[in-house]
């Protein structure tokens, strides 16, 4: 029997090549759309933010001690908002990283299959609660509780917002870290235990370092979430920009400022309008920098140990 191959110009073959090309083009467009959106967002931010510096000098922006772009006697000290953002983020991470990591260790190394089946959905429910609910939880439950323990704490404060935000981030960190730890091969676990190590030593000295790359990703995600979180801080931390790291006072984060100002009517092109974009840009830069630092640490660790 003769084996038949199509010739390069046969209709059948041309159609097949065209089909493959269309599929590839379609997949490319889908994949490129998110890249395009990102580029578009950054572009808009930069274009709208840059004219801000026509009116405000960079030194004012960096060194003014207050942020009052909408006042008669406007001041543009972005560091006040940066202070608020970093303060709430640090408080949140102080809660979320230890608790999230310990939860992951428990779920991955200690809990039985049954226990994990109960724990995981409940933990993931934490992530499903709308952030506005967390905000009111912070303001109406945690703050009064804190006021009983720490007299003199203001009714809007960074501490309460940060703590609640931390709880909110726990499932992000624990879930990803747990996946990373469970992916550590069994023979590493057995290798440690066979040397006479306890479960605790194995978990923290072998499994956690082995899963570090995944755990670091979880931390980075947690940091990004905390930096960008809006509702909780807008509701519970107050709307008072402050150049201070006192967690007991009210403060304002970059995100909270944007919400506050966006809700009002601002004439397009006004300095107040520009201030939204410029603070958004600063936030973006922060998130980017933390992401980069995280990536660096991760690839460093990988090089060292892989």
């Amino acid at each position: 029997m003769k084996t038949e191959f199509s010739t390069p110009h046969s209709t059948k073959r041309r159609f097949r090549v065209l089909k493959e090309f269309l599929i590839k083009a379609f997949l490319f467009i889908c994949a490129a759309s998110s890249v395009l959106v990102t580029v578009g967002v950054v572009w808009t931010l930069v274009v709208e933010a840059l004219p801000f510096f026509d009116d405000v000098s960079l030194s004012q922006f960096l060194f003014d001690r207050e942020w009052t772009p909408l006042f008669e006697n406007a001041q543009y000290g972005i560091m006040t908002l940066v202070c608020g953002t970093l303060l709430t983020t640090v408080i949140a991470l102080l809660v979320a990283i230890p608790l999230g990591t310990i939860t992951a260790v428990f779920l991955s190394e200690y809990s039985s299959e049954k226990m994990r089946e109960i724990f995981k959905p409940i933990l993931e429910l934490l992530a499903a609660i709308p952030t506005v609910v967390y905000g009111y939880f912070a303001m109406l439950f945690v703050t009064p509780l804190l006021q009983k323990i720490i007299p003199g704490i203001s009714s809007f404060n960074a501490l309460s917002a940060g703590l609640v935000m931390g709880v909110m981030i726990i499932p992000y960190i624990s879930s990803l870290s747990e996946d990373a730890m469970r992916a550590v091969p069994l023979h590493l676990r057995e290798g440690s235990l066979a040397l006479g190590a306890s479960k605790f030593q194995t978990s923290f000295r072998v499994i956690l370092p082995a899963a570090f790359s995944g755990v670091a990703s979880a931390y980075i995600l947690g940091i990004s979430r905390a930096l960008g979180e809006t509702m909780v801080v807008a509701i519970a931390a107050g709307l008072q920009p402050r150049l201070s790291f006192n967690p007991l006072e009210s403060t304002q984060t970059i995100t909270a400022f944007i919400v506050q100002v966006s809700l009002g009517d601002l004439p397009q092109g006004s300095i107040g309008y520009r201030s939204i974009y410029v603070s958004g840009l600063v936030l973006l830069i922060f998130t980017l920098v933390f992401n980069l630092i995280g990536q660096l640490i991760r690839s460093n660790m990988e090089k060292k140990f892989k």
Binding site: H187, L188, G191, A194, P209, F212
Partner: peptide, 11 residues
């Protein structure tokens, strides 16, 4: 002590 089938150095 024990040595396993697959080499399993710690990271």
């Amino acid at each position: 002590g024990m040595v396993f089938q697959k080499p399993n150095p710690f990271p």
